[in-house]
């Protein structure tokens, strides 16, 4: 497979990148690892005339770990997150999730921001980061803004990204020390077929189902059951998940999908590991 010709631009800073995206409009796209974009282009699904390479923009590659949050530049590769010792210590669920993304070659090139901006419904990081209520910083011609990831993701391959806007970083607020975080997926191919992310905290529980719907699906009923039972009533949470998935107009095979989702929740709770201090 080969691609139709394009011109590659290499801005050194965000503002220049935004200006280039503005200048070329619909004919331009931001290029980072290329693991999603170049595939689409090779398959003929996209034929941009201009690729704006963001890999020389230092701001996009910052990665900071603090007691209460992870700040991950949109251009940080999956592999860097996967091999980060502090993140492995504090948030093992995120690291084991990252280790499951595609394969080593893709993780060496592909970025977290690219994954989220691509908005493929079968994304591993989107589900867990939605459960953790991560936010994304965007910079565009009108300046910067911050959106919850839950709002940034609109649907299948659709995001709130405005024309010429660039995702610069992802902020992951960490639950309190001792809270448990779990992610479990079933993957028939490299991408998840169905996944569940859970956050088990005294005050706040979250249950999110990934890959079954166009964007991660919250299951507040299951979260409420877990919150009121100190994370113990897994059977009721699984049943609540089954009901929630059946309530979504998911089409053929609903029973099977609901069953898978409920099992993923059970396993995510079983897999959940405590968040440790830095």
């Amino acid at each position: 497979m080969s691609m139709s010709p394009f011109e590659l631009h290499r801005p050194d800073d965000l503002l220049s990148a935004v200006r280039l995206l503005e200048k070329y409009g619909d004919d331009a796209v931001l290029h980072m690892g290329g693991t999603e974009l170049l595939l689409l282009m090779k398959l003929g699904f996209a034929q941009p005339g201009h690729l704006i390479d963001g890999k020389r923009i230092a701001d996009l590659k910052r990665l900071e770990v603090a007691d209460d949050r992870l700040t991950i530049g949109a251009g940080v590769t999956h592999r860097r997150i996967e091999r980060h010792r502090d993140i492995a210590h504090m948030m093992p669920a995120l690291v084991s999730l990252e280790k499951a993304v595609a394969n080593i070659r893709v993780r060496n090139a592909g970025t977290l921001g690219g994954n989220l901006c691509f908005a493929e419904p079968h994304s591993d990081p989107a589900t867990l980061l939605a459960a953790l209520d991560a936010t994304v910083d965007l910079v565009g011609p009108q300046g910067g803004r911050t959106l919850p990831l839950r709002e940034f993701l609109i649907g299948a391959f659709a995001t709130a990204l405005a024309p010429a806007e660039i995702m610069t970083r992802i902020t992951v607020p960490l639950p309190r020390v001792g809270a448990r975080v779990g992610y479990h997926r079933l993957a028939l191919k490299e991408r998840p077929t169905v996944a569940a992310a859970v956050v088990l905290d005294d005050r706040r529980c979250e249950v999110w189902i990934g890959a079954l719907t166009a964007k991660p699906l919250p299951v507040p009923e299951a979260a409420a059951v877990l919150a009121s039972s100190a994370g113990r009533d897994v059977t009721a949470a699984a049943e609540a998940t089954r009901a929630a998935v059946l309530a979504v107009d998911a089409g053929e095979g609903d029973d099977y999908r609901a069953q898978l989702a409920s099992v993923m929740v059970r396993r995510a709770v079983a897999d959940a590991q405590p968040r440790l201090a830095l």
């Binding site: 290329g34 090779k42 390479d53 890999k55 592999r79 070659r105 060496n108 090139a109």
Partner: peptide
């Protein structure tokens, strides 16, 4: 680091 040459730009 291992990468896939099939989906990497030479420029990269």
């Amino acid at each position: 680091q291992a990468i896939s040459a099939c989906t990497t730009l030479t420029a990269d």
